[in-house]
C-alpha cells in the first residue's frame, strides 16, 4: 500500500481549484464532505485485540484508507531509583512509522503526554511494594501511515491495547522482592473497568462555521484550524493545534469543538469497548 502515498510524502499541494471546491463545500450549511459523511461520522475501522502472544496487551487497527497500526504493551519489573525522573518515567512510549525517520518526536509526544493524565491513577497501579515498580513499554508501530493524520489511529489502537493489558498478580508482601501469581487468569487489568480509562485523541478540523471529526487529508488541507482533542472518560483533558491550519478560529468554535468532542468520544469509547466482545 505504501507506494500509493507518494504525493502525500513529497507534500505536493492540492491545486487551487480543488482547494476552493473543498472549502466551499465544507462551509455550506449543511456541509458536504467529499465522501458524504456526516460531520461527526468516522471512517470505518477494523480492530482486533490480543494479537501478540508475547505481550501483556496488544491491539491492531486498520483504517479503510489503508492505515494500519499495531500496538504492543509490555511490562517489566524495575527497581525504584532516585536518579531517574520518578513515576513519570514508568511509562515509555515508542512510535515507529515504517519508512520514516524515527526522530520525529511529535507523534510519540501526543500519545505519551496524554497517557499521563494527572489523577488517572495508572501510576499507583504500577507500584510493586516499597522498592519495585512496573515499567510499561508501549510500542506503537504504524505499518502503513494513513492518508490523513495518524494521531487518531494511534491513540485508538493504544487505548485498545491498554484496555487489554493484564499484569500478573503480586502475591508477596510490600517489603519483599516481588513474587507473582503463576496463573495468568488471575492477572490484574492495567485499566480496570471501573477506573478512569486511558485517554484518546480525536482530530477535529474547523472550516468556517462547521467542525468535522476524523478529517481526511483533503479536509485537513482546507481547514482553518486543526485541533487534536484529548479526551479522558468524559472530560477534555487537552487541546492542541496541529500545523496545517490556514486561518484563525473563533472562541465559539473551540467551545463547540470541546462540547461535541465529548459527545462523540462517548460513542467512540463504547464501540472501542465492544471490540472483541462479539467473537
Amino acid at each position: 500500500m505504501a507506494p500509493l502515498q507518494t504525493s502525500q510524502q513529497t507534500g505536493t499541494p492540492l491545486s487551487p481549484a480543488e482547494l476552493s471546491y473543498l472549502h466551499t463545500s465544507l462551509t455550506l450549511t449543511p456541509p458536504i464532505r467529499p465522501d458524504s459523511r456526516t460531520p461527526t461520522q468516522f471512517r470505518p475501522l477494523f480492530a482486533e485485540s490480543d494479537i501478540l502472544p508475547s505481550t501483556n496487551g496488544s491491539a491492531r487497527m486498520i483504517w479503510g484508507d489503508g492505515g494500519e497500526c499495531i500496538v504492543g504493551v509490555k511490562a517489566e519489573v524495575e527497581k525504584n531509583s532516585i536518579s531517574s525522573g520518578g513515576p513519570r518515567d514508568w511509562i515509555e512510549t515508542n512510535v515507529e512509522v515504517s519508512g520514516q525517520r524515527d526522530d520525529d518526536a511529535f507523534l510519540g509526544m501526543t500519545v505519551a503526554e496524554s497517557l499521563l493524565v494527572p489523577g488517572s491513577g495508572v501510576l499507583e497501579r504500577l507500584v510493586l511494594g516499597e522498592r519495585f515498580h512496573w515499567k510499561i513499554f508501549v510500542d506503537i508501530l504504524l505499518l502503513t501511515p494513513p492518508l490523513s493524520h495518524p494521531a487518531t489511529l494511534l491513540t485508538l489502537t493504544t487505548y485498545l491495547a491498554l484496555r487489554n493489558t493484564f499484569l500478573p498478580k503480586l502475591v508477596s508482601e510490600a517489603a519483599e522482592d516481588p513474587v507473582f501469581d503463576d496463573d495468568w487468569g488471575n492477572g490484574l487489568p492495567l485499566y480496570p473497568v471501573d477506573r478512569i480509562p486511558p485517554p484518546i485523541t480525536l482530530l477535529v478540523v474547523n472550516v468556517g462555521e462547521n467542525i468535522f471529526f476524523d478529517p481526511t487529508r483533503e479536509e485537513l488541507a482546507v481547514g482553518d484550524v486543526v485541533l487534536a482533542v484529548s479526551i479522558c472518560e468524559k472530560k477534555v483533558v487537552g487541546v492542541r493545534t496541529l500545523e496545517g491550519g490556514s486561518g484563525g478560529v473563533k472562541r465559539e468554535a473551540v467551545k463547540r469543538v470541546i462540547k461535541e468532542s465529548c459527545e462523540v468520544a462517548e460513542e467512540v469509547f463504547s464501540s472501542l469497548n465492544g471490540v472483541g466482545e462479539g467473537d
Partner: peptide, 10 residues
C-alpha cells in the same frame, strides 16, 4: 452512527 469498529475479515 458516528463510528463503526468491526472485526477484521478474512
Amino acid at each position: 452512527m458516528p463510528i463503526s469498529i468491526l472485526p477484521p475479515q478474512p
